[in-house]
Amino acid sequence: MQNKKIRKAVLPVAGLGTRFLPATKALPKEMLTIVDRPIIQYVVDEARNAGIEHIVFVTGRNKHVIEDHFDIAYELEDTLRSRSKASALKLLEAIRPMPGTTSFTRQQEPLGLGHAIWCARDIIGNEPFAILLPDMLMKSEPGCLSQMVEVYNQSGGNVISVEAVPEDQTQNYGIVEVDGDASGRTFSITGMVEKPAPGTAPTNLFINGRYILQPEIFQLLGSQETGAGGEIQLTDAMLSLMGMQPFTGLRFEGETYDCGSKSGFLAANIAFALEDEELARELRPLLQSLLDS
């Protein structure tokens, strides 16, 4: 039987972004820019390129700027049109979703990632869907979610993107357990351990913020007791679902930047800037002079 197409994706964007205060006092952390585009735009583009037809943003207070970013800016576009700024106008039109392809729902209390995903249940309905954590910015061709959709189309079930981390850093991540050899590109996931101490982790493969899950996860999240930090944890619900459905791990082929940290955010800016040939010519000597000083 053919697997149901992955049509919808959930992007949880309700977080406060406290690690970037005071910059995020009035500006959502997802709207911080990598070169000349907000982080959220890169993640939306990744989803679109993977064939996602409808994106659900789970928002919180003071996140209206995200909704505005993906809407028509009448005054700005009229001004660009009157000034014959065709290239800038074309750029704005390219990032605008088609009508009816985005939804925004509110997570009214900060009750955890699992609760944020549960808030999208009625919009997703009874079909498999993707989750993209906007803090995690992926750099690859094809994109991370495109790689996952390819695996899902072959295996069905649930697919989790993972990548290797140094064994002395496992305490910073959610680590997967696998069935048998994990040296290949894909493998069966049998468990997950949240932030295991170095030397106790079952593998060195961490979950890097991309998921394809079956809709049964919503029922589990709805009855889920609070876990670590007094929050409803997505990991706990996935562990329960793992007893009923297969989970496939995909070793992501590309680079990941954790833009929830200052160092990851700065590294992403440099990496994406160096991809621009003209910008790279100006930037490389500046970076070298900083390193030499």
Rank of each mutant, 00 (worst) to 15 (best):
R281I: 01
R251Q: 11
P97Q: 06
G17A: 11
G180H: 05
D68C: 12
L286Q: 12
A73E: 09
F57S: 01
V176I: 13
S84Y: 02
R61A: 11
E277R: 13
Q169N: 07
I189F: 10
E77D: 09
K139Y: 00
G15F: 09
L76T: 13
T170C: 06
W118I: 10
T105K: 11
H69M: 01
T186I: 10
Y152I: 07
S87W: 12
S240P: 00
G229L: 06
T101I: 12
F265A: 08
N3D: 02
A50D: 05
T256G: 02
A26T: 13
P166T: 10
A268K: 12
I175D: 04
K85S: 13
I207N: 10
L91K: 14
H115S: 13
S82N: 15
L16S: 10
G249N: 08
D179P: 03
R185F: 00
F265H: 00
S261M: 15
G60H: 06
E231W: 06
I6S: 07
I34E: 14
I189Y: 10
I124D: 03
N204W: 00
I55W: 03
G260D: 09
V13P: 12
G157N: 12
G227L: 02
L283C: 01
N208I: 06
K5L: 15
R61K: 10
G125N: 06
I175A: 12
A273K: 10
K8S: 06
P285N: 05
G125R: 01
T24A: 04
G227T: 10
R83Q: 14
P97N: 07
E141S: 12
E150S: 03
V44F: 14
N3I: 03
K262N: 03
K29I: 08
G227F: 02
D181A: 07
S289W: 02
V193I: 13
G125I: 02
L80P: 04
